[in-house]
Amino acid sequence: MTTAIVVQDLTKKFNELVAVNHISFEIQQGEIFGFLGPNGAGKTTTLSMLATMQQPTSGFATVQGKDIEKDQDGVRKAIGIVFQDQSLDEELTAAENMDFHGRLYRIPPEIRKQRIDELLRLVELHERKNDIVKTFSGGMRRRLEIARGLLHHPSVLFLDEPTLGLDPQTRNHLWQYIATLSKEKNISIILTTHYMEEADRLCDRIAIIDHGTIIALDTPDNLKNGIGGDIITITTPEFEKASKILTEPWINRLEIYNDEVRISLQNAEQHISEIITILNKHQITITSVSIHKPTLEDVFLSYTGKKIREEESDKKEMMRRHLRMRRH
């Protein structure tokens, strides 16, 4: 495997705000690599820097061996990008949008025509190729943008929130499509998302990013296993008392989140009755109990002490009382 992207100590400041804070990582050729984090975590800024749209404040990065600051043209030829916001010309037809792109990347007319047909078929827009983009739905536009991003055969494809605002069916469809793409064409795909499911299903490796820093980077399975097994969530008014008496050795970790006690442990099914017995013995009222396999949401929660969606509204976060305890 060759390395597609190398990033060292990359930093971006906007005046006083540090959007990306000394991040370092490497991405292999053919890998699907995800940036998972709340809005404003620095995902798009990182992507923009790698795509030469913004200059880093400090640090160093290469894409296909080309320096993102010194060889912008080299980087631009190697990458395709689908922006978070739409970037199609709505007054042009699907085919014209593709053609414009092909000309900008100086693809010879013959090859251009052939690839446009091929890609429009691939994203199932061939029948609509002569329709004006204005008449397209959100999902169709997204697919067209992906097709356009592939027209010049990039070896690295950036997808910024590729399924934002799409309905579940279209989203599923796009996921399958992205997965096939990376496998068949050996393209490195770097995507940003704040959808847990998307990151989990698609990515070979995930970097969890919050406040401009990578707080964890691994495969989805390793990330989930790393937080200590299954999770038992107990809702109780006496959560503080409950957290103090649960000290069994098989408990890997215990956290309080709102009025929930979240316990990480292996083989939750075997220990659940034991936990309930202990709580009953101390006369602690249990409102509800649930067991689930760890998700990336749990991973995010365990690293940052908050859920991804909460991050999106700071006020709520400030009002919310949340205690955190760790036992290991």
């Binding site: 795509a51 030469t52 749209m53 043209d73 631009r76 030829k77 990008i81 922006f83 916001d85 739409q86 970037s87 199609l88 010309d89 709505e90 792109h101 900008l104 990347y105 356009r148």
Partner: peptide, 13 residues
């Protein structure tokens, strides 16, 4: 505003 300028600016031109 409609984002199309990005498409041109990120191309190798």
């Amino acid at each position: 505003q409609f984002g199309f300028l990005k498409e041109t600016l990120v191309a190798p031109v």
